[in-house]
Write a protein that binds this DNA or RNA. Structure first.
Lengths: 250, 250
DNA sequence: ATATTGAATTTGTCTAAATAAAATATTATA
DNA sequence: TATAATATTTTATTTAGACAAATTCAATAT
């Protein structure tokens, strides 16, 4: 089956999805199994087994031994390039197109396979070369390098300690909407009041409001001690976005 | 084959391409033949024959009689919606992303099948609700209506008459680049000096420069008499584009 | 040493989109 | 009216991406 437009020697959209997902999976555990990948993508084992074979043959993956699927150098770069596109698009949608934190994911997932690197660069410029996306995730460099930033979660933060929200580790729209509505977006400062024992809820203070957070919620919110390395704090009054001002060509 | 992402009940990318192409073909002649469509898309006759059957079954096309393929109401709307996306994207690429007149087509062709209507709306807003794209073509309305604007070409223009360039009827990058470099972009005024007999070249004056144009070239350039209904004239000093200014969310 | 189990792979099937080659239908012409 | 030319449709194949069911493989547990 031929694509309606020419992808040159780029990996197919499907391949990019596999590669990106495996990238995610192997960030923490260094290796992934076929079944993990299948579960993560929602495909059947056979489908994934077959595809992994192809991607290995094409040099994107290394499949050493049963549960030892990982990305090759080439795969890493591919993954980072796609991820860069995705995160730049998400930032664009958020900052310029009036999308909410919980709405950027779907659109970006479709666009990331389709925009050229050139357009990604242009968008990056428009956005003023952001370091992070609206969820607080680092945007990989053009060359395909994603710096490893290890963060702690709000759940792990000691009582009475003040922190800055750095990143939100979820793509679930419901959760994101809730977090956003609480005002816990990346860049915002908050203080952990206390944690109830036996995995009980965490109480935090944001903007002089005291909010209770479930363990799951608190574990999704990654923080840094005091002054944050992220881009500037972001207020999200949705549908309150002005169009960017037209440049020279007028 | 299932798409990696969900297109809901939208037509496939491939279908959108057929529909759009048939839209183009039937703007002038009201009917298209299988062979015309095949030629326009660069597909084989059998492929097109088959696909036309499907699209007819799905209610996008009406295939009355041999060479009488045309769009149904539903097909018209689909075509216009895709075309609207394409032209908004082209305008965006041109005005905000530093793309040249001859470079917008490819990127837009890929993106038009993938962006949501919502994003198209957002882009439209950013651009200040443009009426025409960088080639001077009308941008269809959100509801899927493309006004018919009948224009004359530079070739048909009488000697010594002053006109405004309205639209460029080509997607060929080479030609577009050349036209752009001559400064004959939509919105620009020029004067037809004279035409050599027997389909000879046309001489025109732009910015006090006298330029000779081949018949093919002059036939591609559509014009209106004096003051143009297009958006404001556009200077295209490429790579001279400033990033749009960031809006409220900062 | 042999079941049992769980993971991975193979095999066979499906669909959408494309092709080429053969068959058929329509129109125009001698 | 028969025939040549042209346009269209059918038939059989291909490829990528998916699935389910059957099978193989390796590591334990008995």
């Amino acid at each position: 089956m031929r694509k309606p437009y020419d992808r040159k020697n780029m990996p197919s959209e499907s391949s990019e999805m596999y590669i990106q997902k495996i990238f995610r999976l192997t960030r923490k555990q260094s290796n992934a199994s076929i079944s993990e990948i299948a579960a993560a993508l929602g495909f059947s084992l056979s489908t994934v087994s077959e595809k992994v074979k192809h991607l290995t043959h094409d040099g994107y993956l290394v499949h050493e031994w049963r549960e030892h699927v990982s990305l090759s150098e080439k795969g890493q770069i591919t993954a980072c390039k796609t991820l860069r596109k995705r995160r730049l698009i998400e930032t664009f949608l958020y900052k310029f197109a009036g999308y909410g934190l919980h709405e950027v994911h779907d659109e970006a997932c479709r666009l990331e396979h389709v925009i050229s690197e050139r357009l990604a660069d242009a968008i990056e410029g428009m956005l003023g070369f952001p370091k992070t996306d609206p969820h607080g995730h680092d945007i990989p460099s053009k060359k395909g390098i994603l710096p490893e930033r290890k963060l702690t979660t709000l759940y792990e933060t000691a009582d009475e300690k003040s922190v800055t929200v750095a990143a939100l580790q979820t793509t679930d729209p419901e959760l994101l909407k809730y977090i956003n509505d609480m005002g816990l977006t990346p860049g915002i400062q908050c203080e952990v009041i206390d944690k109830a024992p036996f995995k009980g809820p965490v109480r935090i203070k944001v903007n002089d409001c005291i909010l209770p957070l479930s363990v799951t919620m608190a574990s999704l919110i990654e923080v840094v001690p005091a002054p944050c390395t992220n881009d500037k704090p972001v207020r999200n009054k949705q549908n309150n976005v002005k169009a960017p001002v037209a440049p020279i060509k007028s």
